[in-house]
Design a protein around this nucleic acid. Structure first.
Length: 271
DNA sequence: AGGTTGACCTGTCAGC
DNA sequence: TGCTGACAGGTCAACC
C-alpha cells in the first residue's frame, strides 16, 4: 500500500490529531518487523511535539530528544479512532491519547513501530541513514539524479526502488513515472543522459505530487487516517493494466518482472 | 561496492 | 466447495 504519497497523506491526517497531545499508553499486539526497543510503559506521559516524514517513515517526535519511527510496510495503515474502539485481529499497536487513539492496522506485519532515544541514535542511522533525497524537496534536481545514477548498471526501475537516489518511489509510482517520462524500465540507470533524466525528474515530481493531492492510492486496501480511500487507481496509466491499450499510443501494456517485482510499461512509447 | 536473491507474514484470487 | 500456488504497495541481511 504505502509509497510516499500514502505515507504523506497519513502524516497530514494524523498530525493535527496527535500533535500537542499526551500519550496515556502504548498497547502492542502481535510482533511487527522490529521490536519497539523500549518498555511501552516508558512512553506514558510523553507529549507529541511533531509528526514528520522521511521517505516512507513517519517520525513521531516526543518532548525530548527521542522519537518513534513508524513504517507501514506493505499492508499497514494508521487511523485515528475513538477511545475504546475494539481491536481487530490485524491491529497491532495502539498509541492511546486522552481523547482518541492512533491505531496501526497491518495484516502482513512488515510494518514497524520503533523507539529511538535521539535523532542520531544507531537505530535511526540504520533505518534512515542511506536514504536518498526527498523527491518533493528542492534538493531533488536532474543534476542530483544524474550524479546518483552515474555508472550504475542496474535497471532504472530497480534503481528508483532502491531509494538511494531518491526516496519514496515504490513499485506503482516507478512504473507510472517511467511511463510519463517515456523511458523503458529496463534501461541501465547509468545510460540515461540529460534530456531523459530531466523528463524522469519531472515525471517523478508530477506523479508523486498528484498522488498526494488525490489522497493516495486505493489499489487494494489503503485507508487514510480518517477512513477514506484514495483514488490513484482511477489515474494509473500503466500499473496493473497489462494487455490494455496504452493511453498514449494504444499499444498493449506489457507486464515483466524485475527483481521479483512486477513492472508495467508500453513497449512502443518507452524506449 | 554494486548487484542479486531470499526472507519476513497474511490475505486474496485464479485455476483445477 | 476445497485445495494449491501465485501474487500483493517494502526493505533488510546475506551472498557473489
Amino acid at each position: 500500500m504505502p509509497e510516499l504519497p500514502e505515507v504523506e497523506v497519513t502524516r497530514q491526517g494524523i498530525a493535527p490529531a496527535i500533535t500537542g497531545q499526551r500519550i496515556a499508553a502504548l498497547v502492542l499486539g502481535k510482533p511487527l518487523r522490529w521490536p519497539l526497543g523500549c518498555a511501552p510503559a516508558a512512553l506514558a506521559g510523553r507529549t507529541v511535539q511533531a509528526v514528520r516524514r522521511r521517505g516512507k517513515y513517519l517520525l513521531i517526535e516526543l518532548d525530548g530528544p527521542d522519537l518513534l519511527l513508524l513504517h507501514l510496510g506493505m499492508s499497514g495503515s494508521v487511523r485515528i479512532l475513538p477511545l475504546g474502539t475494539p481491536a481487530g485481529p490485524h491491529d497491532h499497536a495502539d498509541l492511546v491519547f486522552g481523547h482518541a487513539l492512533l491505531r496501526l492496522h497491518d495484516p502482513r506485519r512488515f510494518g514497524a513501530l520503533v523507539y529511538a532515544p535521539s535523532a542520531d541514535a544507531p537505530i535511526v542511522r540504520k533505518l534512515l541513514g542511506r536514504l536518498g533525497v526527498e523527491p518533493l524537496s528542492e534538493s531533488f534536481t536532474p543534476a542530483h539524479l544524474a550524479a546518483a545514477l552515474r555508472g550504475r548498471r542496474i535497471s532504472i526501475k530497480q534503481a528508483l526502488l532502491a531509494g538511494q537516489a531518491v526516496v519514496g518511489v515504490g513499485n506503482i509510482y516507478a512504473s507510472e513515472a517511467l511511463f510519463l517520462a517515456g523511458i523503458d524500465p529496463h534501461t541501465p540507470a547509468g545510460q540515461l543522459r540529460r534530456p531523459r533524466l530531466e523528463r524522469l525528474h519531472a515525471a517523478i515530481v508530477q506523479v508523486l505530487s498528484e498522488a498526494v493531492q488525490r489522497g493516495g492510492s486505493s489499489l487494494r486496501d489503503f485507508v487514510a487516517s480518517d477512513g477514506s480511500h484514495g483514488h490513484f487507481q482511477l489515474a494509473a496509466r500503466v500499473y496493473g493494466r497489462q494487455g490494455q491499450p496504452c493511453p498514449r499510443c494504444g499499444a498493449a501494456i506489457r507486464l515483466s518482472t524485475q527483481g521479483q517485482r512486477s513492472t508495467y510499461h508500453c513497449p512502443r512509447c518507452q524506449r
